[in-house]
């Protein structure tokens, strides 16, 4: 029996459990502070701007090209069994239920999650978080809660815009490149679209927004060791957001399946 091997497994498991426990505690704290005063309105609004507004170009561009590509690819597939009329429907359902939330989530994780981790990480290593505490300000309330709340609210808004831009991209390619009739494409887009397609996507988006800003805050908050530590925190925030988004996407899909 190779005891070293077992010991290594044990060590990794313990480390993992410790990290899970740590993160759970952080999450509970965050949620608690979101719902208890004082609320930092000014900071919350600033975060809405930096998470939401400034992510618009990236998210919009992603949605536009995803919608365009989707129309092309689905056309290839559906034309094989003469079901070209399904293109509009599949594009809109694919976007609203799946691609807009997931891709926006990933883009925002790369942009905002990294920025949050770097900012809070720098505040940690330059003792700014300690300074907050000495000024009787709870860093959870002041730094974490506004960012997480802003993430949960802005990502659905971004996804709604991404839905519209993505569908428009699909429409553009379908009518300009694939010679679809514009009015029947639009009709097919909306005839089979159900409210819950859009809503389930927005729910996903809210969860992804929570994940992204939480991971940014968590890794930034627990960073140590100077510039290198901040770099590590940033990477970890992005990677863990990506993984959590993709994994939770599956479970959310199962949960929201009608």
């Amino acid at each position: 029996m190779d005891w070293n091997f077992l010991a290594a497994i044990g060590r990794v498991t313990l480390k993992f459990m410790q990290a899970v426990g740590h993160l759970s505690l952080f999450t509970v704290q965050t949620v608690r502070h979101i719902f208890t005063p004082p609320f930092y309105m000014r900071i919350f609004l600033r975060q809405l701007m930096s998470i939401g507004y400034y992510s618009l170009p990236v998210v919009g561009l992603t949605a536009l090209f995803t919608g365009m590509v989707l129309a092309l690819q689905i056309y290839v597939g559906s034309s094989r069994f003469n079901a070209e009329s399904a293109v509009a429907t599949i594009v809109v359902i694919g976007l609203t239920r799946e691609l807009a939330p997931v891709l926006s989530g990933l883009m925002v994780a790369g942009r905002v999650g990294a920025a949050i981790a770097a900012e809070i990480g720098t505040m940690r290593v330059t003792e700014q978080i300690d300074a907050l505490v000495t000024l009787s300000t709870n860093p959870f309330k002041y730094l974490v809660a506004p960012r997480v709340l802003a993430g949960m609210i802005t990502l659905p808004a971004l996804v709604l815009i991404a839905d519209i831009i993505g569908v428009s991209g699909g429409f553009l390619v379908a009518t300009e490149v694939l010679d679809f009739n514009a009015s029947s494409y639009i009709k097919n887009t909306f005839d089979f679209l159900e409210t819950r397609d859009v809503v389930s996507g927005l729910i996903k988006a809210s969860v992804f927004g929570f994940i992204v800003s939480l991971m940014g805050c968590y890794h930034g908050f627990n960073s140590n060791g100077g510039a290198q530590g901040v770099g590590r925190a940033t990477t970890n925030a992005v990677v863990s957001s990506f993984i959590l988004i993709l994994v939770s996407d599956y479970f959310l899909t199962v949960l929201l399946l009608d």
């Binding site: 900012e119 720098t122 505040m123 330059t126 003792e127 700014q128 300690d130 300074a131 907050l132 505490v133 000495t134 000024l135 009787s136 709870n138």
Partner: peptide, 20 residues
């Protein structure tokens, strides 16, 4: 702790100013 710190001031060795 927050209450206690309300009557306390601290100058950090490296200032630790909020750069935002």
């Amino acid at each position: 702790r927050e209450k206690t710190l309300r009557n306390t001031g601290m100058l950090f060795q490296y200032a630790a100013l909020f750069d935002s």
